[in-house]
Write a protein that binds this DNA or RNA. Sequence first.
DNA 1: AAGTGTGAATCACTTCACAGCC
DNA 2: GGCTGTGAAGTGATTCACACTT
Lengths: 216, 216
Amino acid sequence: MKVLKIPEPTVVRLSLYSRFLNQANDKGMDIISSDEIGVAVGIPSAQVRKDLSYFGEFGIRGVGYRVKDLCEQVDKLLCVNQPWPVVIIGAGHLGKAMATYKGLLDRGFEVVALFDTDSDAIASSASSEEVSDNLPIYPLRELERVVQEKKIKMGIIAVPAESAQSIAEALIQTGVASIINFAPVVLNVPEHVEIRNIDLTVNLEVLSFNLGMRSS
Amino acid sequence: MKVLKIPEPTVVRLSLYSRFLNQANDKGMDIISSDEIGVAVGIPSAQVRKDLSYFGEFGIRGVGYRVKDLCEQVDKLLCVNQPWPVVIIGAGHLGKAMATYKGLLDRGFEVVALFDTDSDAIASSASSEEVSDNLPIYPLRELERVVQEKKIKMGIIAVPAESAQSIAEALIQTGVASIINFAPVVLNVPEHVEIRNIDLTVNLEVLSFNLGMRSS
DNA sequence: AAGTGTGAATCACTTCACAGCC
DNA sequence: GGCTGTGAAGTGATTCACACTT
């Protein structure tokens, strides 16, 4: 039952809608218009309606959307109505920052394990280093066991550029097929694996490019 | 001297080209083809040539590009042939992770100061906490002074969602007009300010959406 | 022969504008 | 009257394919 190809920008916006709708729902709002949603997330109302219309008719003409219903529908589309266990590879500053970040859990993503190469973060600690409550740092050799026991589908790569490709391969080996990559490298992975890169320096360079454009 | 509107995806790719070309140059490569660049960054060669062609003719027909020349040209376009001082607001795990991240300096971005609200990271330390060598954590009230003294144009927001909007306003107040925002909120800012959002949960939700699509 | 540079064609996404319903 | 849903139009980005240069 493939509906039809959904534009990626639409999916990104759905996530923004979801966050806002959950907040609106918590505040007890009952009805909301595409215009209000648009203002909240900085997007034209026609775009909001078009995005939603890919998936069905969720609103009431002349009225708007029931916040609770729309919220549930959008969360279901994004599959955030279920918890997602994730692993993080790399227990450096960034890996630990994400492991302790509460915002993930708020959206249903649970970091169930942090990994690092056997030699570094692990060996340097006495025996069982923990980054926070109940979150041990495992050696990489435990990756396969944990991923399979906990049926993990998503991994976050937070290791240096040099090791990112081999870590990606290790993750894929164990069955993880959805990866967020923070390392500043282009990873190559098989067709069926989805990688999303989050690259701070690329973002900074877009800013510096645009600063350069203005002053010329 | 506005050339013509450059597509944003092109600018993002320029950053990838730059990183790769600098590595190729360091390895002593002399000539490179659009196809080799494309393979390295995972993009079709026609796209590489089209991207470069927005800015001029950098190659030699039938031959390819001189690595050193192209590298210099692309770095100049991105304005990464000059150092950029940046500030980070928010000295939590994420802020500290970025402040100590060497990859920024490699690309010419120097974190010159980390800020936090007066009450938190600062007050809790004895007197002058440092996150690493020579990088003190300043109280927010010092922001304006530092930004203006060091002529800072870029800021990175790494504070909780609740305070991100007011921090953005504070940055803009001091003259910063290019901002990377890690907080999971849509900031509204004046026309002339450029915000780039880096949102981990949005990225994870795109992955969960796509996982949901496959199994249906 | 090999690889760039680029108009033209295609594909993708956004915006418009209005019919349809409450 | 007000707001949704959506084809149609418009805009933007990618891919094609080939003339051009070394």
